[in-house]
Each structure stands twice: as structure tokens, then as C-alpha cells.
Design a binder for these strands. Structure first.
Lengths: 139, 139
DNA sequence: GTGATTGCAAATCTTTTGCACTAAA
DNA sequence: TTTAGTGCAAAAGATTTGCAATCAC
């Protein structure tokens, strides 16, 4: 295991603790898969398949539970670009996305490459939680 | 029928003709429902329910077909903000959206109230089709 | 122990599909 | 006619749920 993933793991432990989630085998192994590499955009089915391929025994229902719990704990960010399927982004820093309409693939745009010069006031009684910019590209 | 919806109807007829779509009873009645009022964000189920309530006999499958055909004909714009459900926006002018996380409701932001000062180059071989800005708000 | 977590299968929800019937040109 | 469009019911996908078994504390 690389030192990068060790750091990632201890961060995960902290976040789980902060969220009151027990560090179970499944959560830690899924975290290992999610955070071992570069920033990724992954769907529940894909993570489940990857887990099975890596001999990590976990049910699809638990994958869904874990992805949502990690999202609540701000370890992941959920992105919905097309009907039917959610992606979870392991990059929770400020950034936006290219969406490739043909392939359905998502690609990060570093936060500093998009700048929003003006934003309206949020409606009465609400505050802005997040601004998503999706740049849809095609051939 | 107001003159506004008469104008809308003849526009619909033109767009259908341009798309090679026959102006069937179902398409015209659904267009009537969609474009009779202000800008709306409506899901397939909702439009179907509204049609039934207005004694417009049409199947849910036809509602789906029609919404997609209208979207291809640029009479509508599809918006996906949360998993599982698509909304169709009767406002196809340049604009963005507030998304109310609690209620799931969408609200238009006029195009001129959001300005994007910088955008990255699209990836090799692609061009930008659309830029969606979703401002997620909560209480 | 005891309360949280997991796995499984069934259920749910939205959307799509196959195909016989109907309607527009 | 001939071809597009429609309705229905079934199928398909993604996600959620109920509940008994299992695990962390």
C-alpha cells in the first residue's frame, strides 16, 4: 500500500468517526478501492464489480449504503448528469465537469478554470449549498 | 384560447413539420398543456396526470415519446438534477436553475443573472453543446 | 449483550420496448 | 394504401427496503 493511500485511509477513519459510522470491513475495503488512485467518477454497479474482482465480498445494497454514507460524510460528492444513473466523485474539492454526451463519461475541470462572475440571490429563506457547472460536450 | 397559445400552437406545428413529425391529436394536445402557461418544469408522470385530469386521453408511453421528440425538436429542454427522474423545461432560452434540495423543485434563473467569466477548452475533438449551471439551495 | 451493519431477495420507481391496432398523409 | 404513431402490458435498470443473521463496541 502506498503512503498516499495510508494517508487516505486515516482520513477515512477520521471522517467515519466524525459521522458516527463504525469502521467495518466493508466500509474500509470500499474506501480502499475508492481512494487508492486518482480522482474517479464511479457508479454503484461499477464499484460493486470492482470489489468482486478484487475479492472484496460486499453486497450491492451495502455498496449503495456506503456510497451515500460517504457522501453525507463529505468523502464523496454525488453527480447526476443523465437519467437513471448516479456517479460518485472522489474529488470533493471545488471543481466542475465536462460531460461527454456520446460516452456518458465525466471529466474534471479544475475549479479555477471556470469562473462565475455573477450569481443571483438565492430565493427567500434559502442559502446556496453548491453550484454545479456541467459543460456538455460532443463530437 | 389566448392569442399567446395560438402563437405557441403555430410554432409547435412548424417545429413538428421541421422535425418530420405528424401533428397528431396527442402531440397537439400535449403541446397545448405544456405551452399554455408560463415556463414550466414538468416530469413525464406529472404531464400524464395533467392530461388525464384535462380529459386528454393519452398513454404514459406516448407522453414519454412526445417529451423526447419535443426535446429533439428543441421545443423542450431536458434537465436532470436528481437521480431517477427527468424534468422537461418549456423554457428553451438561455438560462440556468435553482434546485431546491428539500422539495426537489426547479426554478429558473434568467440567463443574464449568471455569467461565466471563464471556461476551459473542450477536450480534443469535441465542442461544447451546452453549459448547465445548477445552483443548489436549501434552508 | 445490544445496537449498528450487512446480505439477500423482494419491492419500487422511472423509463423503455415489442407489437398489434389505429390514424395521418 | 403505406408508413408513422399509439396503447398496452411486459421488460429493463437503478435504487431502496424489510428483515433475519452478523459484527463492532
Amino acid at each position: 500500500m502506498t503512503s498516499t493511500s495510508l494517508r487516505a485511509l486515516s482520513y477515512v477513519l477520521d471522517r467515519l468517526r466524525a459521522a458516527g459510522l463504525r469502521p467495518t470491513r466493508q466500509r474500509l475495503e470500499l474506501a480502499g478501492l475508492l481512494f487508492k488512485g486518482l480522482d474517479r467518477h464511479i457508479a454503484a454497479e461499477e464499484l460493486h464489480a470492482e470489489a468482486l474482482a478484487a475479492n472484496v465480498r460486499v453486497s450491492l445494497a451495502t455498496v449503495y449504503n456506503t456510497l451515500h454514507q460517504f457522501t453525507d460524510a463529505r468523502l464523496l460528492r454525488e453527480i447526476v448528469v443523465a437519467g437513471g444513473r448516479s456517479y460518485f466523485d472522489t474529488n470533493v474539492a471545488d471543481h466542475h465537469h465536462f460531460y461527454h454526451e456520446q460516452s456518458g463519461r465525466l471529466e474534471d475541470i479544475p475549479g479555477h478554470l471556470v469562473s462565475i462572475a455573477a450569481l443571483p440571490e438565492p430565493p427567500q429563506g434559502t442559502s446556496i449549498r453548491r453550484v454545479d457547472v456541467i459543460v456538455r460536450v460532443g463530437e
